[in-house]
Design a binder for these strands. Structure first.
Lengths: 357, 357
DNA sequence: TTGTAGGCGTTATCAC
DNA sequence: GTGATAACGCCTACAA
């Protein structure tokens, strides 16, 4: 009989009306108290807040979103859960949002889902002011992109298509960085350089990185050999350890090479495992290079030579560009950052040269 | 002047009424068409769906959630983004939900956020039927847990507190598995076994794993030495490569040991790096063991000896238990699965013994 | 089979 | 400062 106030109200179903009634005020006053409106008596506000606390009242977000003109919020759509490379960018993005006093909604997108459809839904639902896309190969028809009625920025992705000029994007120059890495391997004396890359149909960073590789070879008058290219399976998990492992095994079966350039650090780590199992030592008998600059590559043994993407800078620039676009201060632009070639333990001079001595 | 139908309607702001008007029908008919209600003329439905398509109408989820009594949905709250161990469980969970035709909302929780507050909000907003908690140390006061008015299951976590009996939980027996690993290291002849573990104040799996370690030592009459215990910093990122690396460096400075038991695979990998830099070879001079059975440990060189948690089984059981609880067929229960000791390359007999020969 | 109207829980706009 | 009240966009009786 004693215990809870009133007669056992189902606390979970409290509404703003109930709180108003308990405090003997109107609903609008409660609303004002919750939303930090200025014109409210501090004492009334205090009473209301205490009551809210006491009854564990939680306002209904759906009703809020429905009524609100626009919330001070953006969303980050991440394609590819478990890609730890994105985690760092997301952290940076969240930090920037906090600074600007925006809330940042993190939304995962499954590999087979369409990020645009999800974007359309969530914009409406949350009354978003902007969007950031992370991951995915992003080759959507122009008309569909135009349905997005809020500013958006692609982060660390870029489409290889023609009309890419109209999208705001922040990333490294995947072609150039890939060229850089290939050139580095060539300078080490490697001529047979295998590559692990995206599925053939990829039109995004995967394609750009492959093109950078090919161009570097061509500029050295070395023919690009199809047998040295390991394409991922479009349906399987893409940039994973397992994929790197399998592709390397297959490559090893049909050809040989003195260096292997994996277009992500995860792929590179998988490759090292496959090489070890084949009794090939890295880097003495085969050099391995990655891409991204993930923490895992730094701790791996041997640590992985890679192109480090400046994630903090990219995150910061992405957020700033988006906020400027929201304010109307900016138009969609493409920002390019310089990657950094990190020479680590997994690469060395080609042993073919040494054997000459 | 030509082009878009009607006079340049802002497509993003279309409502169900607009669609109804365009089709010359009532809103309820449109609603019925969208929600696959049976009692509707197929031809009317077709017309409506075509119009929706044409105008890229997207229904407002907030309004839907507001009206709906309950949606067929659950949420998974994950604390600790970038913990790849959770990714696998999440995948399994999503698969199970699909089977049951439930939708599964993935919600990240920041390290400093309170998962319970988020849970309370999202339950109301999405009218959830159930919840799954992944990660976090979960030591909430009982009264607060009771505010959750839908069934929930803790997955791969368990509180070390007293009244843990009342929560539904699915996991391995962290104490026992930890005991098992320590015993294994002891059997290899190691006596000075360092451990990398959660912050002192941890009341969750971290504590349980430490207790398992201590018990195994005690049972062998080996005293537990505080100097061999590396506690994480509660404020920093916890189960990370970096943490493993730093703790090991510190341990190395003040003491010596022939084996190191890291209570996660990520910690173990960080530890291996630190040992390598100290010129200590793994496993010849120091064995290293992890916990979890993550993919990264399998690909690492040397591959990491670990306790593999049966993630698929845990995911499946978690989902099933939750759905049974939702249906009222089950009460909160604790399900325990057996971990598997995976002997890999990072552990070996103690060299102290070898040197005797 | 279809349309009308009321209400879900908020916030915003008024008067007071 | 405060309290009614009208939206917000959708779903769902109920009536036709």
């Amino acid at each position: 009989m004693e215990g809870f106030p009133e007669k056992g109200i189902k606390m979970g179903n409290m509404t703003i009306k109930d709180i108003a009634k308990k405090c003997g005020v109107g609903v609008s006053t409660v609303s004002r108290a919750m939303n930090n409106h200025p014109d409210i008596n501090p004492k009334t506000k205090e009473l209301i807040m205490k009551t809210i606390e006491e009854f564990n009242y939680v306002p209904n977000n759906s009703a809020r979103n429905l009524k609100r003109i626009q919330s001070k919020a953006i969303a980050v759509l991440v394609k590819g859960i478990g890609n730890t490379f994105f985690s760092d960018i997301v952290s940076g993005l969240e930090r920037e949002c906090q600074k600007k006093n925006y809330s940042c909604i993190l939304q995962h997108v499954e590999e087979q889902e369409d990020e645009l459809d999800i974007a359309l839904h969530i914009i409406k639902e949350k009354k978003l002011q902007g969007l950031i896309f992370l991951g995915g190969s992003f080759s959507h028809p122009k008309e569909k992109m135009e349905q997005l009625e809020v500013p958006y920025v692609l982060s660390t992705i870029r489409t290889a298509g023609e009309n890419c000029e109209q999208y705001a994007a922040v990333s490294v120059d995947d072609f150039k960085e890939s060229y850089k890495m290939t050139e580095y391997l060539l300078q080490l004396g490697h001529e047979r350089i295998a590559i692990l890359t995206a599925p053939k149909e990829d039109e995004s960073i995967g394609k750009l990185r492959l093109m950078g590789y090919a161009q570097a070879l061509k500029d050295k008058k070395i023919p690009v050999q199809e047998e040295l290219i390991g394409y991922m399976d479009a349906k399987k998990d893409r940039y994973s350890f397992q994929t790197g492992y399998k592709l390397t095994k297959e490559l090893l079966k049909k050809t040989d090479f003195t260096a292997l350039y994996a277009t992500s650090d995860t792929l590179a780590i998988g490759a090292c495992r496959a090489l070890k199992e084949a009794g090939i030592s890295v880097p003495d008998e085969c050099s391995v290079a990655g891409f991204d600059g993930m923490e895992a590559g730094e701790f791996y043994i041997p640590s992985i030579t890679t192109i480090r993407q400046p994630v903090e800078k990219i995150a910061k620039a992405t957020a700033e560009l988006l906020f400027d676009m929201i304010k109307g201060k900016e138009v969609p632009r493409q920002l390019v950052f310089e990657g950094e070639l990190l020479e680590r333990e997994s690469t060395a001079f080609s042993s073919c040269h040494e054997s000459v001595k």
